[in-house]
Design a protein around this nucleic acid. Structure first.
Length: 521
DNA sequence: GCCGGTAGCCAC
DNA sequence: AAACGTGGCTACCGGC
């Protein structure tokens, strides 16, 4: 929690030190004005905006204490720094207020992002329960497996090497063992053949070490990133994990989670999914996880006003099956699993600003098939085709796109008369421009729900704590005897968070930990 | 020893 | 690997 800015700021505010929250306001205002500027850093940006020279800045705030944390710096040394910090933020306020106004972001700032600060701080302060013993045991099992795999690989190769080094691994596979890289295998910028999983997948039959390497990768990732790292970050006093949510870490309006990132806990593979057993509710409490079902595709249906898609969601159909039926011109009950899988790939591609070429990456389609598929898709969903064109046109005319709540992402390189860019960069920007309103609207909606939930729960005398947000999912800790009413209330608030022309659907699961979850009746 | 780039991979 | 979007983290590795 020491790294946790929001929490620290709110603590300072509680003790009457209003300076830090001001810096936080400034940071969010700056980000809303230009989400792409986040890498510049608030301080430097602020100084530059106020026309202060870098040399003056260094004089004011000093230098050479980067290794120290704020708590280690003597008060006398930190005072001018803190005062300067407050001064720039205060000086910046009128500028930013005006810029927000000009960009129609004022309501988003005052009514969504700022009220969300204290909600997120409370989630961070609460933290999530964690079973340290389970993590230790799980890590030890992974360690054993790693040693066994390593031994077997070194046996095949005839010598030991650093399996964690892609460069050394490439040398072993393609030089020592003289395996043939699959067609079109890229060389990395460091000049060796890539050993990415997608390359190794194609080499499974070629040599027994390939499978072992893939398994080693999976197990090593789970051990280092999850089993080991999570144990190290358990708070000594609370015994829980306290993530930090960043409101300014993404360009689309999504939150980001760090130290530790609790938005990328494994779920896809069985072994990885076991990690979720470590996330536990205390005795007499349960974890409740509620997620939006297909929220991004529902947003597409709403924004595109596509008749076929609106109808599919109105009737609560399986959207991927419906898409398959439409594209393959068959009845819904004639859709095969393979057809549905391809349709699902295209629906995902849609959200990401798909091109037929891109589709060949994540589906089993050939380029020609993918092209036919996209043609058929747009023929069946003409509203979607129009919407994509309109979005790109808006970026061209205005230089920005926006979400339902008016959150903007600017694309100066797409604006007519804007800076010249390569075709590749242009295509990339267009995909980003198509994706941003969809992903960003989903973020707007779940943020609205998060804003209302704590108060609504209290009003109904429910003692649930909101712990985590994972983009389309909220995780709560709930007294066991309040599970049903809490799940009802949470789902109601999430469904009503924003009125679309399609229903918002949610799914609720509960359990003693984040692995053993079952549907709420 | 710190820093930054790169490769690789986890999530939605 | 690859022209499908948004993030964060770990390990290696070369540079200072």
């Amino acid at each position: 929690m020491g790294h946790n800015l929001k929490f620290d700021y709110l603590m300072l505010a509680r003790y009457g030190l209003e300076v830090a929250p001001l810096a936080f306001d400034t940071m969010i205002a700056e980000w809303l004005c230009d989400p792409n500027s986040r890498n510049l850093g608030l301080k430097n940006l602020a100084w530059v905006r106020l026309g202060v020279e870098m040399t003056e800045i260094e004089e004011l705030i000093g230098s050479g204490r980067q290794q120290q944390t704020m708590a280690e710096v003597p008060i006398a040394d930190v005072t001018p720094y803190a005062a300067a910090d407050a001064a720039v933020c205060l000086g910046l306020q009128p500028q930013l207020e005006e810029e927000l106004q000009g960009k129609s972001q004022l309501a988003l700032f005052h009514e969504l992002e700022m009220p969300l600060v204290s909600i997120l701080a409370e989630m961070e302060r609460t933290g999530v329960g964690v079973d340290e013993e389970f993590l230790a045991e799980y890590g030890a099992n992974l360690e054993e497996r790693l040693s066994a795999i390593e031994e077997e690989i070194y046996e095949h190769v005839g010598r030991e090497f650093n399996l964690n080094s892609p460069q050394q691994l490439s040398g072993v596979l393609f030089d020592t063992l003289e395996l043939d890289p699959p067609d079109r295998t890229r060389k990395t910028s460091s000049g060796y053949y890539s050993t990415a999983a997608s390359v190794l997948e194609e080499m499974r039959e070629v040599h027994p070490v390939v499978d072992l390497v893939l398994e080693h990768r999976e197990v090593a990732k789970l051990k280092s990133t999850y089993a080991d790292a999570l144990q190290e970050q358990i708070h000594p006093e609370t015994g829980r994990l306290h993530t930090s949510f960043s409101q300014t870490g993404s360009v689309t309006g999504r939150l980001a989670s760090s130290e530790p990132n609790l938005q990328n806990i494994p779920i896809r593979t069985e072994l990885g999914r076991q990690i979720r057993r470590a996330f536990v509710a205390p005795a007499d409490r349960l974890l409740l996880a509620v997620d939006y079902s297909q929220i991004e595709l529902r947003i597409v249906a709403h924004m595109a006003q596509d008749e076929a898609m609106l109808q599919a969601f109105a009737q609560d159909q399986d959207i991927h099956a419906t898409t398959a039926a439409a594209v393959f011109s068959v009845e819904l009950n004639e859709v095969t699993p393979a057809m549905r899988r391809r349709a699902k790939g295209v629906n995902f591609g849609l959200i990401y600003g798909m091109s037929p070429f891109g589709l060949t990456r994540t589906t089993d389609l050939t380029l020609a098939e993918a092209e036919d598929f996209v043609d058929a898709y747009f023929q069946r969903f003409p509203g979607v085709k129009d919407y994509l064109e309109k979005t790109k046109d808006k970026a061209r005319r205005n230089g920005y796109v926006e979400t339902l709540l008016g959150r903007r992402r600017y694309f100066p390189q797409l604006k007519e008369g804007g800076p010249p860019v390569s075709q590749q960069a242009r295509s990339r920007a267009q995909r980003e421009a198509v994706n941003a309103p969809i992903q960003g609207t989903a973020a707007d909606i779940i943020k609205q729900a998060m804003l209302r939930l704590p108060r609504t729960l209290r009003e109904e005398s429910l003692q649930a704590d909101m712990l985590l947000q994972v983009h389309d999912e909220l995780v709560f800790e709930v007294p066991s005897d309040q599970l049903d009413p809490t799940a009802e209330l949470v789902q109601g608030v999430m469904r009503e968070a924003y009125k679309l022309d399609v229903p918002l659907k949610t799914e609720a699961k509960f359990g003693p930990n984040w692995f053993e979850m079952q549907a709420v009746s």
